[in-house]
Design a protein around this nucleic acid. Sequence first.
DNA 1: GTTCTAACA
DNA 2: TGTTAGGA
Length: 116
Amino acid sequence: MKIGEISERSGVSVRMLRYYETEGLLTPLRRDSGYRDYSEADVEEARRIRQLADAGLTVEAMRDLLPCIISPEPRFDPCENLRARLDGELEKLDRKLEDMARSRDLIASYIASLSP
DNA sequence: GTTCTAACA
DNA sequence: TGTTAGGA
């Protein structure tokens, strides 16, 4: 199928689908026309990618995680680092949350000093 | 009308 | 990420 169809079916923009390909996350075949040719499996892969992206994960993190989501059940060999990776992402989010909380308090104090 | 690459306000 | 240019 062409890029437009997989885009609609996966909810991933055409722009992002091309970007993910340059990052090695998706590798569609090429037709003689030069058009990308996606498989049915690519649709599922694209949907997984969308979920990870929705979770705020970077392409780098997705590269580690995607191989572990192939089958919802068995996740052993290639996924020893999955826990570590997710823990790392969680820590990154925690730090971000702390920074945002500080910004929030700062802005709140500015507002408070506005009209006494 | 769709897709491609490259590049930008 | 969107959008646009210029081709195919």
